[in-house]
C-alpha cells in the first residue's frame, strides 16, 4: 500500500519542500506539494492525498486553521512540521486533530517512521481491524484485554489498562496529556495531570520499563507520551 501512497507536502520554504519531495520519492511515495494553505485545501478537496505533511508557519493561513477545517470532513493523517519552542502550537495542533509532529531539523529516518505509522493507523481505522500490539517482550490483546510480558500475564488495574490501551491504539504516535486524561478519566479530569504521571509511573513499573532508558513508553515533555512503534512496522 505504501508504494503508491500519495503525500501532499505543504511547506513554503522551497529548500525544505525540495528535500522532502526528493526524500519521499526515493522511498516510493507519490508526492505533491503546495506552498500555501489555500492551495493545500484545494488539493485536499479535489483529490485527497493519503497523508498530509503540514508546516505550521505558512504565509497565508495559520496551520491550525487548516487542520481544523480539514478535520470537518476528512480523517486523512496529518503530520505537522514545527520548530522547537513551539510546544504550545504543537499541542494545539495535535488537539485539533493532527496525528503527529516532527521538530525541525528532523532526520529522514524519523520522518519515514512517522509516515509509516500514520499510514498504518489510517489503514487500520478504515479496515476497523481488531488490534493487537506486540513489541519486544510486550504483547497486548485489545480484544481480550490481556497484557503479556515475556508470555506472563501482567495484572493491570482498569485505569492502568485503559491508559495503556489509549497509548497502544496510537502506538508510534504522540498522545497528548489532555487526550490521555480525557480518554481515561473523562471530561472533568483535564487539569489533573498529577494522576496521569502517577499511573504512567506505575504502568512503567509493571511493564519493567525503566523511565531513564524506556523501551515502551517515551516521555515527550510538555506534550505527552509516545508508545513505541510495533515490531512489524519497524522491520517494514
Amino acid at each position: 500500500m505504501t508504494d503508491k501512497a500519495r503525500i501532499l507536502v505543504v511547506e513554503d520554504e522551497p529548500e525544505i519542500r525540495r528535500f522532502l519531495e526528493t526524500a519521499l520519492q526515493a522511498q516510493g511515495y507519490v508526492v505533491e506539494s503546495a506552498d500555501n494553505g489555500a492551495l493545500a485545501l484545494k488539493i485536499c478537496k479535489g483529490r485527497p492525498p493519503n497523508l498530509l505533511i503540514l508546516d505550521l508557519g505558512l504565509p497565508d493561513m495559520d496551520g491550525q486553521d487548516i487542520i481544523a477545517s480539514l478535520r470537518d470532513w476528512s480523517q486523512m493523517p496529518v503530520i505537522i512540521l514545527s520548530a522547537r519552542n513551539q510546544e504550545e502550537e504543537k499541542v494545539q495542533a495535535l488537539e485539533k486533530g493532527a496525528d503527529d509532529y516532527l521538530t525541525k531539523p528532523f532526520g529522514t529516518a524519523e520522518l519515514m517512521a512517522r509516515i509509516r505509522v500514520a499510514l498504518r493507523h489510517a489503514a487500520r481505522r478504515q479496515a476497523a481491524a481488531s488490534m493487537s500490539y506486540s513489541y519486544k517482550d510486550l504483547t497486548l490483546d485489545l480484544e481480550r484485554r490481556r497484557v503479556l510480558l515475556l508470555g506472563e500475564e501482567v495484572h493491570l488495574t482498569p485505569t492502568e489498562y485503559s491508559l495503556l490501551a489509549a497509548l497502544v491504539r496510537k502506538a508510534g504516535q504522540v498522545v497528548t496529556q489532555k487526550e490521555l486524561l480525557m480518554e481515561v478519566w473523562g471530561k472533568n479530569a483535564e487539569e489533573n495531570d498529577h494522576y496521569l504521571r502517577i499511573y504512567i509511573q506505575r504502568l512503567r513499573q509493571k511493564l519493567t520499563d525503566d523511565p531513564l532508558y524506556p523501551q515502551y513508553i517515551f516521555t515527550e515533555p510538555g506534550i505527552g507520551y509516545r508508545m513505541s512503534e510495533e515490531k512489524e512496522a519497524l522491520d517494514g
Binding site: 529548500e15 525544505i16 528535500f19 526528493t22 520548530a83 519552542n85 531539523p105 532526520g107 529522514t108
Partner: peptide, 23 residues
C-alpha cells in the same frame, strides 16, 4: 518567528538533504 524560519529552515534542509544523500 522570522529568525527561526529564516535560519532553521535552511539548516533543516541542509541537514536533511545530507542525511538523505548519505543513505
Amino acid at each position: 518567528s522570522s529568525v527561526s524560519h529564516d535560519f532553521r529552515s535552511p539548516l533543516a534542509a541542509i541537514a536533511g538533504a545530507a542525511e538523505a544523500l548519505s543513505q
